[in-house]
Each structure stands twice: as C-alpha cells, then as structure tokens.
C-alpha cells in the first residue's frame, strides 16, 4: 500500500474510532447535546473522507459503489497492511 493511500486510510481509521467512542457514549447519554453535535460533525467528516477514499482505492464496504472491475476484493486486506514506517 503506497504512502498516500495509507495516510488517507489512517485518517479514516482515526475518525472511525472517534465515532465508536461518541456512539457508545451517546447510547448511555442520549440527551447530551454537545456530544451529539460532535458525533454529527465526525459523521459528516467520515462520510466525506470515505467517499474520497472509495473513489481512489475502491470500496471499504460491499454496499458502496465501485469502478469496473469490482474493486472491493483488491489486496491488501486489513491484516496484511504494514502500518509501520509511515508518518501520520
């Protein structure tokens, strides 16, 4: 995986993780408006970044659009990625 792709994937992973946090927090604090605003901001950022990533490198989800041929099955899969040696 080249540096540019890895950088974008890492950004996506970071925001994705923040969304896990706001998701669980909101499950037990559904009336916290500040947390919900943060969640919505992160969600918008995630969607935008995911669209950008998918356009360049193919779908992360099997429900997303793909260029021809079907790019979802392209290597590398998550456990084959070398996350080391990159600056993010």
């Amino acid at each position: 995986m080249d540096k540019k792709q890895l950088k974008l994937l890492n950004e996506l992973m970071e925001i994705g993780f923040s969304l896990v946090e706001t998701n669980l927090y909101l499950d037990t604090h559904p009336t916290d408006e500040r947390a919900l605003r943060l969640h919505n901001t992160l969600s918008a950022q995630y969607q935008e970044l995911e669209m950008m990533y998918t356009d360049l490198y193919g779908p992360l989800k099997a429900t997303s659009m793909s260029q021809f041929p079907w790019r979802y099955i392209e290597e590398p899969w998550p456990w084959d990625i070398e996350y080391c040696g990159c600056n993010y």
Binding site: L9, N10, L12, M13, G16, F17, V20, P59, L60, K61, A62, T63, Y72, W77, P78, W79, I81, Y83, C84
Partner: peptide, 15 residues
C-alpha cells in the same frame, strides 16, 4: 452487519 475493510486500530508488530 456490514463489514468495513479496515481495522479499528493500526496494528504494528515489530518482532
């Protein structure tokens, strides 16, 4: 469930 083709955390293994 819908699978997302990424890890929740970037696993680095040094050894």
């Amino acid at each position: 469930w819908i699978y997302e083709k990424k890890l929740e955390y970037p696993v680095r293994v040094d050894t």
